[in-house]
């Protein structure tokens, strides 16, 4: 039950997210040839509705890049980029935003970030996590986040979200990178750190 995560457990998850997103930011920087700033990640365990609210204004239009995560700890990776940021990324990659090719390029960014992040996380925890094929969709933030979280949370009440923000230096482009582990998998991430839930 992720509802009973302690502050120390959340700190540990935040640190895992920090290192993993650092690796992902390096990959993104190499891909785009730009510096990437990384903010301190957030880790929160909240009821589903609150987790969606925490992700931002539900009516805001965003581009979501989602990858299923397979392996010992299944779940999903979800990247959220505002439309202007998506256009910036497409521009840096030399493709037209809002087109099939543009979406495909954004999917590739999701692929590279997701793979780098999960590989770092796997090597720290020994838990196998593999990225699936990315899907790109532009819609209301609430609809995107809720749909992905509904799959990850399932019948539990609490959604665990590890949220890192990557900014392309000098560009109006902030990418929110979220790892949404399935409710049951959190213990497997914490166990190698000696922080498995006592009451699990």
């Amino acid at each position: 039950m992720t509802g009973r995560l302690t502050d120390m457990q959340l700190d540990a998850l935040r640190e895992l997210a920090n290192i993993s997103s650092g690796t992902a930011a390096t990959s993104l920087s190499q891909m785009l040839g730009r510096d990437v700033d990384l903010n301190v990640p957030k880790a929160f365990a909240l009821p589903l509705a609150d987790a969606v609210d925490a992700a931002g204004d539900p009516t805001e239009e965003v581009t979501g890049i989602a990858l299923a995560v397979e392996g010992n700890v299944p779940g999903a990776v979800l990247l959220l980029v505002p439309p202007a940021g998506a256009a910036t990324l497409c521009g840096l990659l030399g493709v037209e935003p809002g087109t099939e090719v543009g979406d495909s390029a954004l999917g590739e960014i999701g692929n590279i970030l997701g793979a780098a992040y999960l590989m770092a996380l796997s090597s720290m925890t020994g838990v196998e996590m593999l990225p699936g094929t990315p899907q790109v969709i532009t819609d209301m933030l609430g609809a995107i986040v809720a749909s992905v979280l509904a799959g990850a949370v399932g019948h539990g009440d609490i959604a665990l979200v590890l949220d890192s923000e990557l900014d392309i230096t000098g560009e109006p482009c902030a990418i929110s990178f979220m790892l949404l582990p399935d409710a049951d998998g959190v213990n497997d991430l914490l166990a190698p750190l000696g922080l498995a839930e006592a009451n699990a």
Binding site: A66, A76, S147, A152
Partner: peptide, 13 residues
């Protein structure tokens, strides 16, 4: 709606 075929890869919608 079927937003993504992600997660449990089931069509929850």
């Amino acid at each position: 709606a079927r937003m993504f075929a992600v997660g449990a890869s089931l069509d929850i919608g």
